[in-house]
Simulated assay, not measured.
Amino acid sequence: MRFLKLFALPLLTASLLSVSLTSATAVAGGEQAAPAAAKAPPVPLLWKISDADNAVYLLGSFHLLRADDYPLSADIDQAFAASDKVVFEVAPEEMFDPTVGQRFMQRARYQDGGTLSKELPADLREKLNRVLAKNGRSLSQVDALEPWFVNLSLVLGVSQSIGFSPQLGLDQYLMRQAAEAGKATSGLESMDHQLDVMDSGPVDEQIKGLREFLDKPDEVPGMLEDIHKAWRNADLAELDEKARREMKDKTPQTYRMVNTERNDAWVPQIQKLLDDAKKGETLVVVGSLHLLGDDGLIERLRGKGYKVERVCAACASGTPDLAAPVAPAPAEATEAGGASGKPVKTGSGKPAR
């Protein structure tokens, strides 16, 4: 839960935060990703969804990356080159609207006279004060901010202190690439809708997420490294366990708003890209969480009858294109294979046996 937004929301607004709650390494807004010969490119979370006459590439993003996560794999470069249009969660012109920072902070603040110290139980106030004190701050300085924002700021501070940057995130990188190539871009939702989603989680679930951070703050860097490694290696089982399943189990209402409802809204838009255009391909870039599980975009589009192929030259033959579903309880074990009852397909489109 504490790392959800690394997958589900494009933290590009993070670079606009005027409040830094933990020490962070500053990264210039115009910084470009530098090639790193020491590492192989990350294994892409990339799928090709197609009908009879055109295709949509679906790419799972990680919104905070390091310079040595570049260059990208040839698979992504080829999908980008083949696409006439690149679609993001939010259109670049909306993401970089100069009013976003102000609108973001408006939602982060209590509007009804509430305060953070009133919301948090005594033990959590004490833990938060201890974390803030290490950076010369106190609870009184953030008392007007809601728990979700404080949690987000803490995670961002730690991530930036170990070298991650939203400016180097896959979304921003591809936005720059699209601008340089003169490709058309658009968004699946508005910036205001995304800000509303961030601000709408139930208070008890917001506090639960903040508690996860504050209970073991020294473990957060290692957890960030682990989940980043899983993304780099396209370890679908690990990502599904640490991102989707954990959030769905611990904060089900937040999961519904951040993941399920947004997937519901995006599927018809992706279908429209396939059904309306008679030629031309599109690259769609979304947080990796949105591709996982039986309620993810991949399975939802597979269920609509489109051809679904994993695009991964680095993957071994027979690699499944999604993490295996969780086995049902014995009394409910009436189906085998994927979440829809179908066999899980491999990258070649053949069922895994």
Score class of each variant (00 low, 15 high):
M198I: 09
A33S: 10
Q194I: 11
N129G: 13
K272I: 00
K248Q: 12
F3M: 09
L46Y: 03
T185N: 07
A144F: 02
L65I: 05
W266N: 00
A314E: 06
D276I: 01
D51K: 14
L12Y: 11
D51H: 12
E126W: 00
A24E: 14
I76S: 03
R232V: 04
S15N: 11
S83M: 08
S140R: 07
R103A: 14
Q269E: 08
L152P: 00
A323F: 03
D218L: 10
G182E: 08
I162R: 06
A352Q: 03
A336V: 13
G222Q: 14
P35I: 05
Q167Y: 15
S340I: 02
V311S: 02
G60E: 11
I298A: 09
E189P: 05
G303M: 14
Q160V: 03
P121A: 10
L273T: 07
L154D: 02
Q160T: 08
L239R: 01
N263K: 06
S288M: 10
A327D: 03
G29P: 15
D69G: 09
F80W: 06
H228F: 06
T282D: 00
A28I: 08
L58M: 11
L174G: 08
C315F: 05
V142I: 12
P98Q: 05
A82V: 04
T99N: 05
D171S: 09
